[in-house]
Nucleic acid binder design. Structure first.
Length: 881
RNA sequence: GGAGGUGUAGCUCAGUUGGUUAGAGCGCUUGCUUGACAUGCAAGAGGUCGUUGGUUCAAGUCCAAUCAUCUUCACCA
């Protein structure tokens, strides 16, 4: 039998075990009709990304669920993959090309895509390797990429279906434009932040009059595109102006004064300039009043030719100059500081520009309805449930989704335009000729689709949809989706409506939501703050198991957690504890013990006690895990292993183990191994590496804990009554230690311990436990009596329910201190007694509360009443000394 | 403005459907080279569960109000 090192070294085993698992094919899923499927789709990380704490917690949770279900005998599939992340990836490639002095337009689309694929080959596998470091037991043979052939086919199919149903349309609308990324982005991709700006009050001269109207605006530079000035129809101050014209300063153009409900009388001057091309609200007003749309800017947010002398200037530079020119013309009435929300691109953080342009949209209303229904009908449940409200809230009033992106890296929109007649053809391949005018002069749409359009199909496209593959039929719909709450709108919502639309089924029955991992100060981890903690650093310092422990323990679902290294240390210490417990067990297996003829008749109270506890922890942990209460489950495993198994059971069996002639020694070894093995099985989903290493060094049955079966409580191991006896001994030991510590008695100082009880069963239990008192309570020997006649008069007493303990330690005791202590204890007992008494005197309690509770109050009253008498007696004895 | 979260020991957080004397990790105090482990063992101090009402025999837990704090959605130029 090998003897382990005294310290657990995760580095020495983690990589080895992971490659063993992979080699053995344990991660591979099989569509096995004899078993029930359990499927989890990994949220595909971005190929440009590197592993961060968000991935770490997300993948740990998935791995926990998958490993448990695998052990429970399900046919488990955890399907991994990566996402092409069009904006982020294209930005990175453009940036790296810029360093070489190359612009993407110089080399053209085809050449650019070649580079992009090369880039993906080079960096796309990095995150995969990092996920393996986390111990993720996903089926790498089924790994998918959102731009691989099958998934691209699914995207085209989905687009065509929606188009044919009229749920995808092309239209000119005002969208969010990122001038740096050079593309449109969806509403969800804009982040709003309160920023200090200004309100410029600008005087617009009224045509043919000497009067002005003053408009207030936060964006003076867009006045180039003004096509009207609006007032509220009920605003008496301005009623007379409606229908007249004003002269747009700097441009010297006539624009009308119109009346529209949208204008708030009380804001600013009550007069608004209307710039349909540069403001979403103005765009709507423009539609209502048939106003022309005049665009003042280029795609890179410089002013365009419509801006005349300001043409070519950046939008903010143009603002400065225009304001200056207006001031010179005495057309600025005043400038006020003004706080307002400014939208910026979630990828590059530059300020987003509302822009009118022709884009493709998904019509949301018809898709949202069934997606709301599946959640209302609980076909998909959010855990914790409060997140369903957040989902429903968003889903119930979401706008049409802008899906076209002015990028090259992504799925090119399968729409073709006839250059001659303008006909639009949506098709899975380039048509030979226009189906209207027969022209062969046909061009494909230049744009690509929003990455989320393809991620939305992830739960089924990865299984082969639109083909009816065996995998799709067996593994779909999936069971659990694990993700952070920050991505409900982006992704979860879109997967649900897509799944319902294309497959007729909700893609997953449970959405398990977790919070964000924050830094030690509670701040969001971000690149710009530089406060991110690299999971790989933590792994190399403490091991993967310790990291996983720190992310799960003491956490409740959906709540953010602060990352702290001391928690990781706690995980590492726990691993070390387990390691050493195993080391201890193995050291006592002097030869390979033969457990084939174990007799339960040789189980003594400690064996019966730990087996009873094991049963309980198996049941509770399984229940907690089924309810996704992972933090509670791990906490219970931790307490079981550390407190019950190590601190108590191992200590209790030591005397037996050291006595090689003891006929019950083998049974103790058996129970040690049995308990440890089962504890490792419970722990395995959480801390896969150490549990496997321990299992393999103990087990002679199965080759890996991964494919062993999940523990089930064994009724024949329930010794509840015996466990109670053990509790009597353990409580006594604790009280004796406690007392000795209070009295500052050294551990080495042994004594005789006397027990007195009129209960024969208690007397027997204690008598049989002598060895434990000797080992764990500094006893020289013990004596058990029915009454106090033979107890030395000058003894320290401990009063426990049903019995008393005496230690003849008069010479070591400070009597005054002891009296003070007992007086305190007396008061406490009286307080508890009165508490119980007041309950029992309350007729409502006695009549309405459940009988067992009333009984337990009665017992409690009796217990404290007895206790108080005993204490009083002891006090009187002491005072006489 | 809408929606939601959080507030429990010095710190970070658990506390499942209301039910013994409210828990853990870390930190702190005291004592231990106890034949697995100092990444350890034993003992201990420390909490009027944000505040105020209410429901109930019984509230950290349910309800209402209030304060503080955070997130998110939508926004008046």
């Amino acid at each position: 039998m090998k003897i382990l090192e005294t310290k657990y070294d995760p580095k020495a085993i983690e990589d080895r075990l992971y490659s063993l698992w992979e080699q053995k094919g344990y991660f591979k899923a099989k569509a096995d009709k004899a078993k029930k499927p359990f499927t989890v789709m990994m949220p595909p990380p971005n190929i440009t990304g590197q592993l961060h704490m968000g991935h770490a917690i997300d993948n740990t949770m998935q791995d926990i669920l998958i490993r448990m279900k695998r052990m429970q005998g399900y046919s488990t599939l955890w399907l991994p993959g990566t996402d092409h992340a069009s904006i982020a990836t294209e930005a990175k490639i453009v940036e790296s090309m810029r360093k070489e002095g190359i612009d993407k337009h110089d080399i053209g689309r085809e050449e650019f895509l070649k580079r992009a694929w090369a880039w993906r080959e080079k960096y796309g596998t990095r995150i995969v390797e990092q996920l393996k470091k986390m111990g993720s037991s996903c089926d790498w043979s089924r790994e998918r990429f959102t731009m691989d052939e099958g998934l691209s086919k699914a995207v085209v199919k989905a687009f065509i279906n929606l188009y044919e149903k009229g749920l995808i349309y092309r239209g000119e609308k005002i969208i969010n434009w990122c001038p740096v990324c050079g593309t449109s982005i969806s509403n969800a991709e804009v982040e709003y932040e309160e920023k200090e700006g200004a309100l410029w009050y600008i005087k617009y001269p009224i045509e043919n009059e000497d009067e002005f109207v003053t408009v207030a605006t936060t964006r003076p530079e867009t006045m180039i595109g003004d096509t009207a000035v609006a007032v509220n129809p009920d605003d008496d101050r301005y009623k007379h102006l409606v229908g007249k014209n004003v002269i747009l300063p700097l441009v010297n153009k006539k624009i009308p004064v119109i009346a529209d409900e949208y204008v708030e009388k009380d804001f600013g001057t009550g007069v608004v300039k209307i710039t349909p091309a540069h403001d979403p609200n103005d765009f709507e007003v423009g539609l209502r009043h048939n106003l022309p749309i005049i665009n003042a800017m280029n795609d890179d947010a410089t002013m365009n030719d419509n801006a005349g002398q300001y043409s070519g200037l950046d939008r903010y530079e143009a603002r400065k100059r225009m304001v200056k020119d207006l001031e010179n013309a005495r057309l600025i009435d005043k400038i006020e500081k003004h706080m307002h929300n400014v939208g910026s691109c979630y990828r590059c953080d530059s300020i987003v520009e509302p822009k009118v342009s022709t884009q493709w949209f998904v019509k949301m209303e018809p898709l949202a309805k069934p997606a709301v229904d599946v959640v209302n009908r609980s076909e998909t449940e959010f855990v914790p449930s409060r997140f369903s409200k957040i989902y429903l809230n968003w889903m119930e009033d979401c706008h049409d989704w802008c899906i076209s992106r002015q990028l090259w890296w992504g799925h090119r929109i399968p729409a073709y335009y006839c250059e001659d007649c303008g006909n639009v053809i949506v098709s899975d391949e380039m048509p030979n000729s226009c189906n209207k005018c027969k022209s062969s002069n046909i061009k494909q749409d230049e744009d690509t689709l929003d990455t989320w359009f393809s991620s939305a199909l992830w739960p089924f496209s990865t299984l082969g949809w639109p083909d009816k593959t065996e995998d799709l039929q067996y593994f779909y719909p999936t069971n659990v989706l694990v993700t952070g709450y920050d991505i409900i709108f982006f992704w979860v919502a879109r997967m649900i409506f897509s799944g319902v639309e294309y497959t007729g089924q909700t893609p997953f029955s449970t959405v398990l939501i977790h919070g964000l991992v924050r830094d030690e100060l509670g701040r969001k981890m971000s690149k710009s703050l530089g406060n991110g903690v690299d999971p790989l650093d933590i792994i190399s310092q403490y091991g993967t198991d310790a990291l996983r422990f720190s992310l799960i323990t003491g956490n409740s679902p959906g709540n953010d957690l602060r990352f702290s290294e001391t928690k990781v240390e706690a995980g590492r210490n726990f691993a070390n504890k387990i390691w050493n417990a195993t080391r201890f067990v193995l050291m006592n297996f002097d030869e390979n013990p033969d457990f084939s003829n174990i007799c339960k008749c040789n189980f003594e109270n400690p064996e019966k006690w730990i087996l009873t506890r094991l049963n309980r922890v198996i049941k509770e942990v399984t229940d907690n895990m089924e309810r996704f209460e992972l933090g509670i489950a791990l906490q219970k495993i931790y307490e079981f292993i550390w407190d019950e198994f190590c601190d108590w059971y191992i200590e209790l069996v030591k005397p037996k183990l050291y006595d090689k002639q003891n006929p019950k020694r083998k049974e103790a070894l058996y129970v040690l191994k049995y308990t440890l093995t089962n504890a490792m099985k419970l722990l395995h989903p959480f801390m896969p590496f150490i549990s496997e290493e321990i299992y393999q060094s103990l087990a002679d049955t199965e080759e890996s804990i991964m494919i062993s079966s999940w523990p089930v409580a064994d009724a024949s191991n329930d010794y509840t009554e015996y466990a109670k006896d053990m509790d009597v001994i353990m409580d006594s030991i604790k009280s004796i230690r406690n007392k000795r510590s209070e009295l500052n008695i050294e551990v080495k100082m042994k004594s005789n311990i006397f027990f007195v009880s009129d209960d024969e069963h208690i007397r027997n239990t204690i008598q049989q436990g002598e060895q434990y008192f000797i080992k764990l309570a500094s006893a020289k020997s013990i004596s058990v009596f029915e009454d106090e006649l033979k107890i030395p008069t000058n003894s320290i007493s401990i009063i426990l329910p049903g019995f008393k303990i005496f230690m003849p330690f008069k010479e070591l005791v400070n009597i005054d201190e002891e009296i003070t202590r007992l007086e305190k204890e007396y008061e406490k007992a009286i307080a508890e007694m009165q508490r119980a008494k007041s309950k029992l005197e309350n007729e409502a309690f006695v009549s309405k509360a459940p009988v067992n509770l009333v009984d337990s109050e009665k017992q409690k009253y009796k217990k404290f009443e007895d206790l108080s008498h005993e204490i009083k007696q002891s006090l009187e004895n002491l005072k006489c000394m």
